[in-house]
Design a protein around this nucleic acid. Structure first.
Lengths: 249, 249
DNA sequence: GGTAGAAGTTGACGTCGCGTCAACGTCAAG
DNA sequence: CTTGACGTTGACGCGACGTCAACTTCTACC
């Protein structure tokens, strides 16, 4: 896939100016730049852009968005996306509440009835900023946005990240040695991986296997594991496929 | 009702800074200012503020908001509010669509399936800017926002406004002469008023009577008619009450 | 090969809706 | 009569682009 700036603009609804802006501030760089300076975008960039736009819909500042989409941990990313899904539903409900308030005001006006001043403003800003939104996207959204993650102490958070790195490193070494995905050594690592994932999200059999496939199929997620060593993502995928058979649902 | 700036802020969720800003740009002036310069707000201001906030939720620029809420034509105002109600519902649906898109992306990612680039961006900006929103709140929202109004030629629009003025003037003269609301002369004018209203909105018996009461009860709307002569709003209300009995529903 | 037009490029400045800070005035309570 | 809460008026700052301007490059057609 090779799209120029206008194609991306048409596809996504953002202007080319916006894409140039995102390049300028380092939020979204093109896949490559022609010798003439023209920007070219690939699939990875489109995925990243979708992620960015979801967050932008929620009025997350671009700087915060950058720190979120730069998180190269795929499971955390997935968890955050689920979180954004919840936020979108909240926005939907907020506008529904507003519509109702306005409707009430209208019918009361039509009937010539007065309203109390509290009643008039039900559903306005109270829903928007209390109690979550402000806290939620305030300073460091990555460290706050997921409930499980938020509940952890900073040390626990660091330990958690380190655990993931350790698993990935060990997997990379076994991948280099061409280990069997079903072997006990590998399966023990997958168990640790599954425990790690479970803090954010408790996937069933199908979902966990799907996550494994995503690690290979999505270039952005694949890079996360393969930077520890070539073949790591594939080994993890295959090992997860075996491990997943033992899961419920 | 006499509220200071902090009360209004608490009630509505906007900051006092915002209220001062709205005063500075002439969007919302306080009812009166104390000898010490402190701002005091009344019921009229709260109504106006709610109107402003509804429009702000829809991302209408403040300048446009000003031209909308300054329209001192009550029926057009009511029609616009109904329009805003529709827009709020549209926003609600837009976020619902976004949530669905994200959900689809998530499940596909979990299953490791790819998506087409079109699919990925379904529900993003296409809904937001096409085909209505941009045109709708573009330059002169007052002259565009109502469907019926938009369809009229500029000359027809001017004629329409003039008709309303003529009716109000005639009513004011009859009010000064202490005319009977049920008299043929007055009822003929109400018939013209009803025809005028019907272009924006076809009220039933109850709704039209309610509109009449609103003309007296709401000070902002009352002023619109009483500027033609004292007692005009009351005469219109009583005359509408009589006229409404002959309406269906 | 020449040229027009469409679409890209990089600065640079403008805009909107306030937030935020500074410096100061005023009021009610202790 | 001070203290502290809350108000006031400037003035500047900012985030996310829009909007020129001046220039280069690609493609199409003669």
């Amino acid at each position: 896939m090779d799209l120029d700036i206008a194609s991306v603009a048409r596809l996504t609804g953002v202007t080319s100016r916006t894409l140039r802006h995102y390049d300028a501030i380092g939020l979204l760089s093109p896949a490559w730049t022609g010798h003439d300076g023209r920007r070219h975008y690939g699939e990875t960039e489109l995925l990243r852009l979708q992620h960015i736009l979801v967050l932008r819909e929620l009025d997350v500042p671009l700087e915060t968005i950058a720190s979120i989409v730069d998180t190269d941990d795929p499971t955390l990313t997935a968890a955050l996306m689920r979180d954004h899904h919840v936020a979108l539903l909240a926005q939907r409900d907020r506008f529904a509440a507003l519509a109702e308030t306005v409707e009430r005001t209208l019918t009361r006006l039509e009937k010539g009835l007065p309203m109390t001043s509290d009643e008039m403003f039900e559903g306005f800003d109270h829903e928007r900023y209390e109690p979550e939104a402000r806290e939620r996207w305030g300073d460091d959204a990555v460290a706050r946005s997921n409930a499980a993650w938020t509940g952890m102490s900073p040390e626990a958070q660091r330990a958690h990240v380190a655990e993931h790195e350790a698993v990935a490193d060990a997997l990379a070494r076994l991948a280099a040695a061409d280990a069997d995905p079903a072997s006990d050594e590998v399966q023990a690592l997958v168990a640790r991986h599954h425990a790690w994932v479970s803090l954010f999200w408790a996937p069933g059999r199908e979902a966990y296997a799907g996550l494994g496939r995503m690690y290979v199929d999505d270039p952005r997620f694949r890079a996360t594991y393969d930077k520890h060593g070539d073949g790591t993502a594939e080994l993890l995928r295959d090992a997860i496929a075996v491990y997943a058979e033992g899961l419920p649902e």
